[in-house]
Nucleic acid binder design. Structure first.
Lengths: 341, 341
DNA sequence: TAGTATCTTGTAAGCGTTTACACGGAAACG
DNA sequence: CGTTTCCGTGTAAACGCTTACAAGATACTA
C-alpha cells in the first residue's frame, strides 16, 4: 500500500504494524496453532493494510514449501502436451500451487541439468512427461526421495510411479471396431517405435487380428513418426499396394489427417472407399471433415490424476501412491463405414 | 556425486573441495573479474566433481537474478496461447531463463495477487498476455519499475510497452481479398468486442468496404465470442438471411470452423457456394477440408519478440524499449473462390 | 626503492523467511 | 495452594547465496 516504490513490506513491517514479533506473524501466515485469535486477527489486518505477500524464495530457503511444482516436457509441439498441461493447471490451481515449465527440446543433457536445479529448492515436486524409457537421472530423484510422477510412461519395471493410458487396449479396441464393421485388410501406421505407447498400440492391433483369426500381413504395417507428413506417405504407400486395405488404423490422429489427404489425392472418398480410425482424440479430430473416429486418450485427466498423485506424495512422502493406467475409449464419428460387399 | 542422499552440495562444499573460500567460488560462478585463471579452473573442477548446481532461491534472495520470468495467461483454452508460449520458450531457452506459468482463468482478483507474488522475488520480469484493457495492477508494476511486457494488447495510451499484431490491417486485407474475388455481400462474425483486437478487425472490415464503395449492412455483422459454437450460430443466422452473404469473414479461425459446419448443414459447399476466410492461422487451419484461407497472426513471433524485449529490459531497466506491432499476412488456401456470376 | 594502484582472496553481513528453543503466564491437577 | 502442563509469544539460528569491505600480494610508477 503505502510503501515507497521498490520497497516492499516484509514480515518485520507486518510485525511492527500489528505490534507483535515476526515469529508470531510467521505463525499466523502458516496457520500454526498457539496463536490467540485476537492476535491472529490483528496480524491479518496488518497484512491487508500493507498488502503484504510473503517472499516465496525466502520461504522455501528457510525450509518451508515453495508451493511450486516443475513440469518437464520435451516440447510444446504436438498439441498433445497442451491438453496434459491443462489438466495439471486445473489441479494445481485448486491446490494453490504454481507451475514451473521446463522444455528440454529433446536434449538429454539439458534434462538432467534441469532436474538438478529443480530439485535444489526450486520446486516441491516434479512431473515428467516421458514417453520414452526412463533416463538415468531418475535414479538421483529416487535416492534423493524427491517427489515425482511420470506421465505417459509405461516402464517395464513396476517401480516407477506413473500415470498412463491403456494404449494396448485402445489399439485392440480400434482394430476390433474395424473388424466388427467387416474389414479384413486393415492397414496400420505405427508411431515412433522407441516409445512404449507406440509399440503398445501395435501390440493391440496384432492381438485383435489374432483373436479374430486374421493373419498378420507385414505389408499392411507402415512405419510412421506421429507427424502428419509421415501419415501422408504411409497412406499413399498403403493405397498403392496391389491389394490395398479397406480400412486404416493410424497410431495417432495427426497422422490420420495425413492419410485422409493421401486418400483424397487418390480420388478416394472417406469413409465410402476407405475407413480411417485414429488415436488420441485431439481437438482437431472433430473439426476435420469427415470427423475422425478415434480412440480417446484422456490426456487432460492424465494431467489431473498425475498432479493429484504428486501433491499427495509431497504432503506425505510415505503415501501409498501407485501407478495408474487410465482407460481409453472409442469415439465414433464419421470416418468409418461397414465394408461394402 | 558422492553425497549422502538428501544432502546436496552447497557452495561451501565446493569451496572446501577446491581449497578456496566460498566467496571465490561465488565469484567464479558469476563470472566476475579478479579471479586467477588457475583458481577458476580449480573451482570449476570441484563443481563438476560434486555435481554442484546453485540454489536459485538463495541466489535471488541474496540479490542476484532469479533467472526466471513469469508468464501471466488467462487460460490454456484456445490453442492461441500455445503458439505464443512456444515463441517465448524458444527465446528463453537461448537466454538460459526459466519460465513460471500463471493462469488466471479470467479471475481479476487472482491476477493481481499473482502479480504480487511474482514481483516479490519469484521472477526477474513478467510477460502478460492481456487482450483486454490494462488492469490496475499494472500501475504497481510501473511505479515499482518492475520489468514487464504486454502481449497482444492494444492499449490506447502509448505508455505501455507491448507487442501486438496489426489486427486492423489484417481485417482490411481479408475483406479486400474477398472484394477482389468479386464478393459484395460479405458477412462478418465479430470476436468478443471488449477486446481491442476484435474491434480492430471489425474496423478493418468496415474500412475496406468503405474504400470500395460498398455500403455497410449491419445485418451482415453477427456477434461472436471467438469460440466455435458461436461461429456455428452466426453461420446459420447469416445463411438464413433473405439475401445471404456470398462470403464470410470470421474474426478467428475457430469460429470459421463453426461457420463451415453451418454451411455444410445447409447443404452448401465450400468454397463453391460460400467463401470463408478466418483470422489467426492456427494449426488446424490447414488440417480442415477445405483448408482455410486466413490472415496469419505471427503469434510465435510475438512471443519471441516480447521475450527479447523483456530480457533487454531486465538487463538494462533504462533501455529504450518501444512497443512493436507485427504485420499480419494473408494465407491463401482453399476456402475462397471468385464470386460466380 | 619507496609509494601507489591493481589484482586476488578471505570474511562478514544481509536477503526474508521458518523452525527450534526459551520463558512468563494461565489453566489444570492433586 | 504448590506443582505440572499447556498456551502464547519473543528471540536466535539457519537456509545458501551475493556483495560490500578488508587485507595481503603483486605490479607499476617516478
Amino acid at each position: 500500500m503505502n510503501d515507497t516504490p521498490g520497497n516492499v513490506a516484509t514480515i518485520f513491517d507486518v510485525a511492527r504494524e500489528a505490534g507483535v514479533s515476526y515469529g508470531t506473524v510467521s505463525r499466523v501466515l502458516n496457520n500454526r496453532d498457539h496463536v490467540k485469535p485476537e492476535t491472529r486477527a490483528a496480524v491479518m489486518q496488518a497484512v491487508d493494510r500493507l498488502g503484504f505477500v510473503a517472499n516465496q524464495q525466502a520461504r522455501s530457503l528457510a525450509g518451508g514449501r515453495s508451493q511450486v511444482i516443475g513440469l518437464l516436457l520435451h516440447g510444446l509441439n504436438t498439441g498433445y502436451s497442451d491438453e496434459i498441461l491443462r489438466g495439471i493447471d486445473t489441479e494445481l490451481e485448486a491446490a494453490n500451487y504454481d507451475l514451473m515449465l521446463y522444455t528440454t527440446h529433446r536434449r538429454k543433457l539439458k534434462e538432467s541439468a534441469y532436474v538438478g536445479t529443480i530439485t535444489r529448492g526450486m520446486a516441491d515436486g516434479l512431473l515428467l512427461v516421458l514417453p520414452r524409457n526412463s533416463p538415468a537421472y531418475l535414479d538421483s530423484l529416487r535416492t534423493r526421495e524427491f517427489p515425482y510422477i511420470l506421465i505417459d510412461h509405461q516402464g517395464r519395471g513396476g517401480t516407477e510411479r506413473s500415470v498412463g493410458a491403456a494404449n494396448r487396449q485402445g489399439g485392440y479396441d480400434a482394430t476390433q471396431y474395424l473388424i466388427g464393421l467387416g474389414h479384413r485388410r486393415i492397414g496400420f501406421v505405427t508411431g515412433t517405435l522407441d516409445l512404449a505407447c507406440a509399440t503398445d498400440r501395435l501390440g493391440g492391433y496384432r492381438r485383435a487380428l489374432d483373436d479374430n483369426g486374421i493373419s498378420f500381413d507385414p505389408q499392411l504395417v507402415f512405419p510412421g513418426d506421429f507427424l502428419q507428413p509421415s501419415g501422408f506417405i504411409a497412406g499413399r504407400a498403403l493405397l498403392s499396394l496391389p491389394q490395398p486395405p479397406t480400412a486404416v488404423f493410424s497410431s495417432n490422429d495427426v497422422m490420420a489427417f495425413g492419410i485422409m489427404e493421401a486418400a483424397r489425392d487418390r480420388g478416394l472418398s472417406i469413409p465410402g472407399d476407405l475407413s480411417i480410425i485414429g488415436f488420441d482424440d485431439i481437438a482437431q479430430a472433430s473439426l476435420v471433415y469427415p470427423q475422425l473416429t478415434t480412440i480417446r486418450q484422456p490426456l487432460e485427466e492424465m494431467g489431473r490424476v498425475a498432479t493429484r498423485m504428486l501433491l499427495e506424495l509431497i504432503a506425505d512422502p510415505q503415501a501409498d501412491v501407485r501407478s495408474v493406467t487410465l482407460p481409453t475409449s472409442l469415439v465414433v464419428r464419421g470416418s468409418c463405414l461397414p465394408l461394402r460387399t
